[in-house]
Structures are given as structure tokens and as C-alpha cells.
Amino acid sequence: MKNRWIALYVENQVGVLAKVSGLFSGKSYNLQSLTVGTTEDETVSRMTICVTSDDVTFEQIKKQLNRMVEVIKVIDLTSVPIHMKEILFAKVLHISAAEKQEVYQIAQVFHVEVADIGNDSVLLECKLTERRNNELITLLKSKFRTIEVVRGGAVAIESISTSCR
């Protein structure tokens, strides 16, 4: 069992998201995250999907997606070089001035922006890999009493091949 990534081109139509997500629940596939947005062609949406599965199930997931009429193309991103980022906001609440300093330090180390600030709170805006975001949350949870997190799920795109540079 490991995390795998799929980029999915689908028709930008009503119900397609429900159909794709329904496949995962209906067939008990383990969906980690799913993001969707339109592409340069507004009739086409692109999804970035992360699933946890074994090899056999993953093959089956790709086939099942492929046979959907609304799915235009399935790209397996698991073993190709990709750029991947996930947006995440983390609000650290009820902190002292000293603790604020600590949050700034963490922000510096993790290369995340301080997006807003209050008397006893700091809002961090992070565009990191999913794994790095996980690490950040773990760290914040261990250091501070109250944090509020919202994350957007990862988006990924294939890297530009070295031969094209």
C-alpha cells in the first residue's frame, strides 16, 4: 500500500465529479485527496487524485476511470517527475508574544508566508508539498494549544522534460 497520483482529464460537465468520486466510494478505493479545476480548454477539467492502494487495485482504478465516458485521459503520475503543491492555511491562536516569535521562526524555516496577524494569533499561508504540509501541521500541533487548519488538496503537473529546456 502506498500513495499514488493520477492526473485525470474529464469533461467539464455537471455530475462528472460526483461520478468520479462515486467510483471511489462505491468500489471501496482509498481516496486521499481530489482537486479539480478547469484547464486552458474550458470544456475540460483536470483532476489531481491521490489514492492509497496496492499495485493490483491501482491498475484497476486506472482502468475503471478510463472506461468512464466522461473521462478523456488518465495519466499516472506515480513514477514521473512532477511538480506538486498544496495550498494550506494555518491559524495559530491564543499565543503569547514569545510564542509569536517561535511561529515566525517556523515560518522562515518552512518557507511559508505570514499572511495575517492579530493580538494573539498568526495566520500562515503555505504552498508546500503535501508531505511538507503534514510535517508543518505536526510541528504546530506539538508546540501550540490551538490551531485551525484548512488545506486544499494537492495539484500536480508533469515536469518539463530536460530535453526541452
Binding site: Q13, V14, G15, A18, K19, G22, L23, G26, V69
Partner: peptide
């Protein structure tokens, strides 16, 4: 009905 039958049809659509 399209939502209800998504997993038991080859394709389903509401004409909008």
C-alpha cells in the same frame, strides 16, 4: 435519477 443510477448505467445524462 441520473445521480441515483450513476453506478448502474454505462452513461447517464440530463438534457439541459
Amino acid at each position: 435519477i441520473v445521480g441515483m443510477t450513476r453506478s448502474i448505467t454505462k452513461y447517464g445524462v440530463t438534457v439541459r
